[in-house]
Design a binder for these strands. Structure first.
Length: 433
RNA sequence: GGAGAGAUGGCUGAGUGGUUUAAGGCACACGCCUGGAAAGCGUGCGUAGCUAAACACUACCGAGGGUUCGAAUCCCUCUCUCUCCGCCA
């Protein structure tokens, strides 16, 4: 959520930055300011009345104490009317506030000043490239062919069980998935200083609101119902990413400055309905309703936000380097960033069988946008409560990593050569037909 | 799912309609005292709104409603925690 004070004091700045995202959100600013003005006017009025009521009530108490009942009764008459007006005004304040906040929670974050203006993915900036596209002396297969020939994933039966967009890993395919998860968690906890967490996969709507998935994108996620009790529908949601539970771990808390930086990593499955998206249509593993991901989350002092973001990107890149996978890092332009982010780097890994790069990681600094929504603060050395920066990054998403790994590491004989870094986890150096 | 007990500031813990403006204790910070420390004494010490800022004012005792001139306190609904029982991996 944007700071209402910033909108009040620098509306033009806010409008310009919002406009740079090409979402049309800047149009809401005037209405927000009107509602805010209305609310503050009413608030001043009602608070004055409340002060008066408190004063008189205290006097009534004193009169009752002195047994001057008649006088007390007279004062009661006098203030009875004030109570009614307070009730009326309180309601109007709440209404204005509600309307203002409904608009406010739908505004995306302001892009950081280092982010390039642009309308779409076309305008993203390639920051760096690592490795090269592998050259094959044979006709390489795509991951679907490899999964089928090596019996790593049973696409047909997954569809039978759950419908399209789900995966059934089998035998060595399942082991490879597990090995990757373990490898990623060990890397980030042992080498990169993150603390491992294993969070719930179902969260409340407050958590969805806290990181910015709600209310604007509520149609993209799975809500669940308990048993046959329809009244429970919408209390809990399947997490679309570990960011949702993990970034919310300290919601509504005041951390001490000494606790920062907080760095968490955690593995979870991720569930995405993505209703209205172009369609899960893509065959294979690239766009699915459920995939595994190891997520990185940081809660840091605002002054450290951007250096921590660079470090986080490097942590995610390390994964691909150790696996020997060619990738590139993009700095997203204003028009292509996610709702909560002020600055985002995407890491795209090369998938030879697709002949394209696949997004496997997105690392963002959301600044205080999420902290404000979840009321997470830290007390600095001077005793002041401030909002920290919250960062999230995939470290990395699994299904697409799996695709790139299979397609990159395939051999002429149809086998997969497991990268050395992964062998201790996979407990073999290859997968053979 | 059944029965019972609870939810008050960083922690602990009093408060059953009116000097509660939330007591007391612990912790913390500063000062006095001391050669230095401890103890002792004194002062301060929740969150937010409003304000250019300060004062003042307002709100907040799990959440939301209600009764009242006035609610931490009374009434209703909900949430969560704990204990026991049942079911369950």
């Amino acid at each position: 959520m944007l700071d209402i004070k910033l909108i009040r004091e620098q509306p033009d700045l806010v409008r310009t930055r919002l406009a740079s995202r090409h979402g049309g959100d800047e149009k809401a600013i005037d209405t927000i300011l009107e509602l805010d003005e209305q609310r503050r006017k009413l608030l001043a009025e009602v608070e004055q009345l409340k002060a008066q009521r408190n004063r008189v009530s205290k006097e009534i108490g004193a009169l009752m104490g002195q047994k001057k009942l008649e006088e007390a009764e007279a004062r009661k008459q006098e203030t009875r009317e004030i109570g009614d007006r307070i009730g009326e005004l309180d309601k109007r304040v709440a209404e204005a506030e509600q309307k203002r906040d409904d608009l406010l929670v739908r505004l995306p974050n302001l892009p950081h000043e280092s982010v390039k203006f642009g309308a779409s993915a076309e305008d993203n900036v390639e920051v760096r490239v690592w490795g090269e596209k592998p050259a094959f002396s044979f006709q390489p297969k795509n991951h679907i062919e490899l999964c089928e020939s090596l019996k790593l994933v049973d696409f047909a039966r997954a569809a039978k069980i759950s419908g399209s967009g789900f995966l059934l890993y089998t035998n060595f395919g399942a082991r490879l998935e597990r090995a990757l998860i373990q490898f990623l968690l060990d890397l980030h906890t042992n080498q990169h200083g993150y603390t491992e967490v294993s969070p719930p996969f179902l969260v409340t709507r407050d958590c969805m609101l806290g990181v910015g998935q709600f209310p604007k994108f509520a149609d993209q996620y799975y809500g669940v119902q308990e048993g046959l009790d329809a009244s429970t529908l919408g209390k809990l949601y399947l997490i679309p990413t570990a960011e949702t539970p993990v970034a919310n771990i300290h919601r509504e808390e005041i951390l001490s400055e000494k606790q920062l930086p907080v760095r968490y990593c955690g593995y979870t499955p991720c569930f995405r309905g993505e209703a209205g998206a172009a369609g899960v249509g893509t065959r294979g593993m690239i766009r699915v309703h459920q995939f595994d991901k190891v997520e990185l989350i940081k809660i840091v002092k605002p002054e450290d936000g951007y250096s921590e973001l660079e470090a986080m990107v490097a942590n995610a890149e390390k994964v691909l380097q150790l696996l020997g996978l060619h990738y590139r890092v993009l700095l997203l332009c204003t028009g292509d960033m996610g709702f909560a982010s002020a600055k985002t780097y995407d890491i795209e890994v090369w998938a030879p069988g697709q002949n394209q790069y696949l997004e496997v990681s997105s690392c963002s600094n959301c600044e205080d946008f999420q902290a404000r929504r979840m009321n997470l603060r830290f007390k600095d050395e001077s005793g002041e409560n401030r909002f920290p920066h919250i960062l999230n990054g995939s470290g990395t998403a699994l299904a697409r990593l799996y695709v790139a790994l299979l397609e990159t590491c395939q051999q002429a004989d149809g086998s997969i050569a497991i990268p050395p870094a992964l062998q201790p986890y996979f407990k073999a150096d290859s997968i053979r037909p």
